[in-house]
Amino acid sequence: MTSDSFDSFDPLSFSTIPTPPEGFKSGFVGIVGRPNVGKSTLMNALVGQKVAITSPTAQTTRNRLRGILSNDQAQIIFVDTPGIHKPHHELGKILVKNARMAIDAVDATLFVVDGSVAAGRGDEFVASLLAPSAVPVILGLNKIDQQPAEEAEAIDASYQAMADTHGWPLVKFSALHEQQLDTLLQTLIDRLDPGPYYYPPDLVTDQPERFIMGELIREQILLHTREEVPHSVAIAIDRVEEDATITRILATIHVERDSQKGILIGKRGSMLKTIGSEARQQIQKLVMGQVYLELFVKVVPKWRQSRSRLEDFGYRVEE
């Protein structure tokens, strides 16, 4: 397969969309909440495969990413959104605006909160955005495995009060350890209307492979660097060539300052080698074959403040 044919690959052309059985339900479910509450980890767990990157760093998700779950009862298209926060640059404004737009473009909303701490002002702010919504809202209390035993009752009560105020059902679970996800899933299905398959049932995401490749590279940068570096990074997949034995990928990591470039490259290239090696292992799982990955680092000053640069890197207000 050539690079051009790889770019134009359409997964739908290789699969068929079946006729659903009687009583089958389907719909789009937006996953919203503050940064770092476990939204991407939850979507991966529900879909049963890694389609969104995860990291201890807040604001990991930048694009509205769709994960697709199909079973005998329903097909749910989960829309993982960027964490809703106070933006400090043009990129942040776009991310938050896209997350807010997702609230009005789905059939149900799963509002995920960090159940290891009591409800705070950030949660109340997200709740105020969801309150006028015409679609069902489920309050998802994640990270119950991390609740301090002596504080668990008070933490639960703070979120139960929020749920009662708005008339939302409250479901407790742990996305990381996949605890009580069956209850959450059934709660979501119960609130969807009868509908068709939107995608072939064997598909887990509608994102192109190039996008996922870039995200897997960015994930390793999030895991291995600190301070301002992770949020100043944009990945461009410059070339993908695939033959019978190996997939060759050329990618550029864009940063805003020379100091960030130095951190990413590391002493004698050690950091870039580590990032490349671990990203390659993840991409091999995606393409189910051997991968050769070559990374370059380029400085593009203040790219997060430039609308044109943001669009070049794929960040724009979504319709």
Rank of each mutant, 00 (worst) to 15 (best):
V106C: 13
A149T: 09
L91P: 11
Q220M: 05
H166K: 10
S277W: 05
A99K: 03
E228M: 09
F313I: 13
S158A: 01
I76G: 02
K39V: 07
S26Y: 09
I84G: 01
S55M: 08
M213L: 14
Q282Y: 00
L223M: 12
N142A: 04
A152G: 15
L286D: 01
L264Q: 00
Q179R: 11
N36H: 09
L69H: 11
P208A: 08
T252K: 08
S70N: 14
Q186R: 14
L176H: 11
Q281K: 11
G140D: 06
I237H: 04
P148E: 08
I253H: 07
I246M: 10
E319Q: 13
H231C: 02
V113W: 04
R304P: 11
R121T: 15
K93G: 11
A251T: 03
L272Q: 06
G269L: 07
P301A: 08
T61N: 08
K172V: 02
H231S: 03
A175R: 03
I189Y: 01
D107R: 05
R66S: 13
L293P: 13
Q179G: 00
P132K: 09
G33D: 02
D10H: 00
G30N: 00
R100A: 02
I144W: 01
G83N: 10
P20V: 05
F173L: 06
V137Q: 15
I31R: 05
T60H: 06
V117S: 12
R280I: 02
L110P: 10
S8L: 12
S116K: 07
D72V: 00
T165E: 10
H224I: 00
F296P: 02
K143W: 02
Q73Y: 07
E228D: 09
V51N: 03
A251S: 08
G83D: 05
Q260G: 10
D145R: 05
R191C: 02
V112Q: 13
L46C: 06
G67N: 03
R304F: 09
P194I: 02
D10C: 02
A102R: 00
L216Y: 08
G23D: 06
G48N: 07
Q207C: 04
K267M: 11
P20M: 08
H85N: 07
V287A: 08
H166N: 14
E241S: 14
P20D: 13
S8N: 06
L46E: 03
I31Y: 03
H231E: 04
Q282L: 11
D193F: 12
H254C: 06
I246V: 11
V300L: 10
L95Y: 03
T57I: 14
R210Q: 11
L293S: 14
G27K: 06
